[in-house]
Amino acid sequence: MSGFTEPAKKHLGQNFLHDHGVIANIVLAINPQPGDAIVEIGPGQGALTFPLLKKHGALTAIEFDRDLHAPLQAAAQAHGTLHLIEGDVLGVDFSALAAQRGDAHGQIRLVGNLPYNLSSPILFHALDHAAAIRDMHFMLQKEVVERMAAGPGSKVYGRLSVMLQAYCAVTPLFIVPPGAFKPAPKVDSAVVRLVPKPQAAIGVAHPPSFANVVRAAFGQRRKTLRNALQGVADSAHIEAAGLRPDARAEQVEVAGFVRLANLLAAN
Rank of each mutant, 00 (worst) to 15 (best):
K54P: 09
L59F: 06
D36P: 08
Q77M: 07
G44C: 15
R101S: 10
G112S: 05
Q100R: 14
A75I: 14
P121D: 07
K55N: 03
D88C: 13
A96D: 14
A99S: 13
L90K: 14
L90H: 11
H125K: 13
G57S: 00
P43Y: 13
A70F: 01
L48Y: 15
Q33Y: 09
F94H: 05
A76E: 01
L114G: 12
L48G: 11
A132T: 11
D93C: 13
G87A: 07
P32L: 11
F64E: 01
L59P: 02
N31I: 09
L114R: 10
L118K: 12
F94C: 06
L127N: 12
L48D: 08
E40F: 12
L52H: 05
A132L: 11
A131T: 15
L72M: 00
A74V: 07
L52C: 13
L127Y: 08
F94T: 09
D93N: 15
R101M: 08
P71A: 06
G102W: 13
D67Y: 07
L114P: 08
A70G: 06
F50Y: 15
I85E: 00
I122Q: 00
L82C: 04
L123V: 13
A76V: 04
A70P: 03
I108H: 01
Q107K: 15
R109N: 08
A132N: 12
A99C: 12
I30A: 14
G44R: 15
T49A: 10
A126F: 10
A47Y: 03
T81K: 12
E63H: 10
I108W: 08
A58L: 00
D103I: 11
V92G: 02
G87R: 01
I41K: 06
H56K: 01
